[in-house]
């Protein structure tokens, strides 16, 4: 049930899907770092980054529109950042009358606002294309190969595995609650306090189920020879063509960033 919503991987046979997860991860992070370093008003560099990202999305055949639609997740945060349009000093561009006060937008404020919005928009698309073309367990392996501590890799992989199981259990709990939440006309099904308490009990129930499941998993691990040490197969060496792609991509990203600072 939950898997249809939680699964972010989109199956495909493109060269982007086939690219080594380590290369994809490093390139994705490099792109986002480069974007975050760009000064306000680096339109050319942002345009170049966007072109690169879109080319990747099109090459992966997961659908540009789908990625753009999912990229809306960062939208609510614009409400916070829109304030700088009016607070950064500069030449007035337009004014917004709000009853007793009037807000004045400045050119510098607008410049900074649109830079932030664009950076954020590109970064979200990069993260989206990474997860759409890479199985999460491949990302985890890549993180392990890049020396994330073993325990963190293990915790993330347990978490990913049981996300689906516990999300299903959470939905069952919600459904059971909703089935018994009949309300008569004009009576609002209890106070906010009472609703919070019921929800707290659901959280407690879910917690207990998770706790008991972790005990059973531990037994299952013991039964198969677990002694507290986590083992995994060694990562395969990087394919030369993947390595070349990664190095080339990183070089392009660095050049784009340098251009913004020098140009």
């Amino acid at each position: 049930m939950a898997q249809q919503i939680l699964e972010r991987y989109i199956d495909g046979a493109s060269s982007i899907h086939a690219l080594d997860a380590r290369v994809k991860l490093v390139l994705a992070v490099t792109t986002i770092v480069c974007a975050s370093l760009l000064p306000a008003g680096s339109w050319l560099a942002l345009l170049a980054l966007t072109a690169l990202v879109w080319a990747t999305i099109i090459a992966s055949s997961v659908g540009l529109l789908l990625i753009l639609r999912r990229a809306l997740v960062a939208l609510p945060f614009l409400a916070v950042v829109v304030t700088i349009v009016f607070s950064v000093p500069g030449q007035p561009v337009f004014t917004v009358p709000l009853g007793f006060v009037t807000l004045t937008a400045t050119d510098a404020g607008l410049l900074r606002f649109f830079t932030i919005v664009w950076k954020s928009w590109v970064s979200v698309q990069v993260a989206l294309i990474l997860t759409a073309t890479t199985h999460f367990f491949d990302i985890l392996r890549a993180l392990g190969a890049l020396h994330l501590p073993k325990i963190m890799v293990a915790l993330l992989s347990f978490m990913y595995r049981y996300l689906f199981v516990l999300a299903d259990e959470a939905q069952q709990l919600l459904r059971a609650r909703d089935c018994r939440s009949a309300a008569l006309d004009g009576r609002g099904g209890g106070s906010v306090w009472w609703r919070a308490k019921v929800t707290g009990q659901l959280v407690g129930t879910l917690f207990l189920r998770a706790f008991e499941r972790s005990e059973r998993i531990y037994v299952a691990m013991l039964a198969r020879g677990y002694t507290g040490e986590l083992r995994s197969l060694n990562a395969r060496p990087l394919h030369p063509s993947d390595l070349r792609f990664g190095l080339g991509g990183a070089l392009v990203l660095v050049l784009i960033t340098l251009q913004a600072f020098l140009g």
Binding site: I151, L156, F158, M159, F211, S214, Y218
Partner: peptide
């Protein structure tokens, strides 16, 4: 602790 924390994160 390892399975406990992993499942708790999912929880």
């Amino acid at each position: 602790q390892v399975p406990l924390m992993g499942v708790m994160a999912a929880c």
